[in-house]
Design a protein around this nucleic acid. Structure first.
Length: 751
DNA sequence: GTGGCATAGCTTTTT
DNA sequence: GCTATGCCAC
């Protein structure tokens, strides 16, 4: 295809506003894109259009928010039929890549290690030990110190500045820890997440060798989700675009990362930063129904500090949003699982069409239980979890040491894993000797005699060094054999087998790392050990999510950004949870909570369910809740209120009003839970084993005639679930439609 | 050096 | 209520 034809293809089916953004070539460009307005399409087509217009792919840099988004963008550009070669990456991956090349200018070799939050914390603790700060006496905990340091870094502040109203001597001590921490990282040839950005800024601003060259390396720079950039990222974006051809896209109403330093004014003040900037607004929504969009629009209108925009859609009205009011989080989860089961049964949606969002990860547990009980397949999106597991981190620590022998945090971590009589005393001795004599921990081990380590520890040190040396002798690609060799040499699986409860899982996790390495190799045939380690360090939650796999998706509202689903369920619309309660509320954080809810709502194409529970367990204590203020902000005409459980039960049976006490056991006798006008679940109190077994092994089918001890004759209308959770909807002559749990219902076939 | 027990901290969100 | 860490005893 000719480049002219390609250019046309880039514009096919686009609106005037979209075309404007796609065809803009030189000079700064701000694309303010509402949810579902075709932003990704505009970015990918703009890149394809640039290339079709003669721009070399290698001159284009596109920054996305997640690795997953980067991968998808690359695919979509290639699908347009233009030559590949544009660099599409996240900020962190891009900076890591630059630092592999130019790290020497800022004190890193190309083998540097990336420290995650947990590694940083270890380094902070080590810094405090070295400074002889008594952790009992110093009132700031290591984790808080680590946070303060990170905070300072991604805002480019000195530690004193971010100490707020803490006493000056505390600030001074934190500053000292910061300094020592940084020295430790330097010695370990390591960079934490924030350093990746910070050192990149240094390359752009301070280092003579790079500050002239790097800003001109790319002619066109694009940054997506610009509303979520922090100070350092802002400087990098600007710094890389000496050409002035900086295109940023985003939506201030979807800024949800202020808590980690994102500065919404980066996008709000883009026009001030670049007075010649062209601004394109994308306000037509192609994703959601009118009702969903109206709800989202009305909610976000309550934010005071925002650029007003008018979202609209030509999509149909759609069905109303539904609010399930439940007694507690268990009922909430059951009601949601029942809903989904019904959708699937009716053929309206498949499980993979459905996403469940929540504010905090802890909410997923109860939900999972109910989904399992209904036999609904689901997937939790929390990719980093796997790499945080102890056994996996241990293995990665070995691999890092192979790559970077200076990495003391990793060396300290696994020196005695599996146990090899190389205890804390010896390690401390080696560490101190190494510090004094300019050697890493690994280096000190190689000179253990000099360091005056003796006894059993010496053999342990030998074993440890042998493992590292053997691995280092292997080629760095392919990666999987290195991981396999590691498991073999350390007898890691045998070590885990004896680790008590959950040992099987741990062994499986360890083996899984071999698979992860093989998968990495499949994606990156040339990939090295270093590349694999980098990928594992910079993986994000959504990165691990494969939408091709079936099942209901469970994730936090934060992880939901940028995705879309036919049906969305948002749990826990309660004061304190969504919006989440915090100590120092100055109103800005409330607005960020509202944006988070806005993001959740606007992920939905056709169907939205919201839930709220009267009480919820928190820290193991039951607390009564107030409905979220966001519920009052929804336009009443697009929301249907659906009482589940207690409220409905009262209405149905005119029981006296009382707050159900979680401390009283429920009264004997059949328990009836009404779920809607026509549906009830009846649990019988006396469950004799024989009847249960009989019920479970008598397959009821739609259309079967049955009798029930209490309700008499009826006809089966619907069957759902498996095993103990199998339920049937039965229409009884006496009382109409009931939903029965077969395990308890004592239902018999009559014909 | 290992294993058992107590307890603190967790539930904000994540690269 | 759970879990990860740290402390102590053997």
């Amino acid at each position: 295809m000719s480049f002219e034809k390609l250019k046309d293809a880039c514009l096919a089916g686009c609106t005037a506003a979209q075309r404007e953004a796609i065809t803009h070539v030189d000079g700064p460009l701000l694309v303010l894109a509402g949810p579902g307005s075709g932003k990704t399409r505009v970015i990918t087509r703009r890149i394809a259009h640039l290339i079709a217009g003669g721009v070399r792919p290698a001159d284009i840099l596109a920054i996305t928010f997640t690795n997953k988004a980067a991968g998808e963008m690359k695919e979509r550009i290639e699908a347009m039929g233009v030559p590949r070669g544009a660099l599409v990456s996240t900020f962190h991956s891009f900076c890591a890549r630059m630092l592999r090349i130019y790290g020497r200018c800022v004190g890193l070799t190309d083998a540097f290690t990336i420290y995650d939050t947990a590694d940083s914390l270890s380094a902070v603790k080590r810094a405090m030990v070295e400074l002889e700060i008594d952790q009992e006496q110093f009132p700031v905990k290591p984790a808080v110190v680590a946070k303060l340091i990170s905070h300072a870094k991604n805002r480019l502040l000195t530690p004193e500045k971010i100490m707020g109203d803490r006493p000056p001597e505390e600030a001074q001590t934190v500053a000292k820890i910061y300094e020592r921490y940084q020295k430790l990282l330097q010695q370990a040839n390591a960079a934490d997440f924030d350093d990746l950005l910070l050192l990149m800024v240094k390359l752009l601003q301070e280092v003579p060798e790079t500050r002239e060259k790097l800003p001109h390396r790319f002619r066109y720079v694009l940054v997506d989700e610009y509303q979520d950039t922090n100070r350092a990222q802002y400087l990098i974006a600007r710094g890389m675009a000496a050409s002035g051809n900086l295109c940023v896209t985003g939506d201030p109403d979807q800024s949800i990362y202020a808590w980690r330093g994102a500065d919404i004014s980066n996008i709000l003040e883009f026009e001030k930063d670049f007075p010649t900037a062209k601004v394109v607004r994308l306000e037509q929504n192609y994703r959601s129904t009118k009702k969903i969009l109206a709800a989202a629009d009305r909610v976000i209108a309550n934010n005071k500090s925002r650029k007003v925009k008018s979202l609209w859609t030509e999509n149909p009205d759609g069905e109303p949003l539904r609010l399930l009011r439940c007694e507690d989080e268990m009922e909430e989860a059951n009601a949601v699982a029942d809903e989904i089961a019904a959708w699937v049964r009716r053929g309206e949606l498949t499980p993979r069409d459905v996403a469940i969002f929540y504010r905090v990860n802890a909410q997923s547990r109860v939900m999972e239980k109910s989904l399992r009980a209904e036999a609904i397949p689901y997937r939790i999106v929390a990719g980093t979890e796997y790499y945080q597991r102890k056994e996996v981190k241990d293995l990665l620590a070995y691999l890092r040491l192979v790559e970077n022998p200076a990495d003391n945090v990793s060396a300290q971590r696994v020196a005695n894993v599996p146990p090899r009589r190389l205890g804390e005393a010896s390690v401390t001795k080696l560490l101190n000797w190494g510090n004094a004599n300019g050697h890493s921990l690994l280096g000190a081990m190689a000179r253990a005699q000099e360091a005056e380590v003796r006894g059993g520890a010496l053999q342990g040190i030998q074993d440890f060094l042998n493992v590292i040396r053997a691995l280092r002798a292997m080629p760095r690609t392919p990666v999987a054999p290195i991981v396999e060799k590691l498991l073999e040499l350390t007898k890691f699986e045998r070590h885990l087998e004896g680790s008590g409860e959950g040992a099987e899982d741990r062994v499986a996790n360890a083996r899984e790392l071999v698979n992860a390495a093989a998968e990495y190799q499949q994606a990156e045939p040339e990939g090295t050990l270093q590349g694999f380690l980098e990928q594992t360090a910079l993986i994000s939650d959504v990165d691990a999510w494969d939408e091709k796999q079936g099942g209901v998706t469970l994730m936090t509202l934060h992880a939901a950004k940028g995705l879309e689903f036919p049906a969305v369920i948002i749990l826990g619309l309660e004061e304190g949870l969504l919006p989440l309660q915090r100590d120092d509320d100055d109103g800005h954080e409330m607005e960020e909570e509202r944006r988070l809810f806005f993001v959740g709502l606007t992920r939905a194409k056709r169907r939205v369910i919201l839930t709220a529970a009267d009480s919820r367990a928190r820290y193991g204590k039951r607390e009564y809740t107030q409905p979220s203020r966001f519920l009052e902000e929804l336009p009443p005409d697009v929301v249907t209120d659906v009482p589940v459980g207690s409220g409905r039960r009262r209405a149905a049976h005119e029981a006296p009003m009382f707050k159900p006490s979680p401390f009283k056991s429920r009264p004997a006798g059949p328990r009836v839970v009404r779920r809607s006008e026509t549906e009830e679940v009846v649990y019988d109190a006396d469950d004799d084993e024989e009847a249960i077994q009989a019920a479970l092994h008598a397959p009821f089918r739609v259309g079967d005639r049955v009798t029930h001890p209490m309700y008499g004759a009826g006809k089966v209308m619907d069957v759902s679930g498996y095993g103990e959770e199998m339920r049937a909807s039965v229409h009884f002559n006496s009382v109409g439609l009931k939903r029965l749990v077969l395990k308890f219902a004592h239902l018999k076939k009559t014909s």
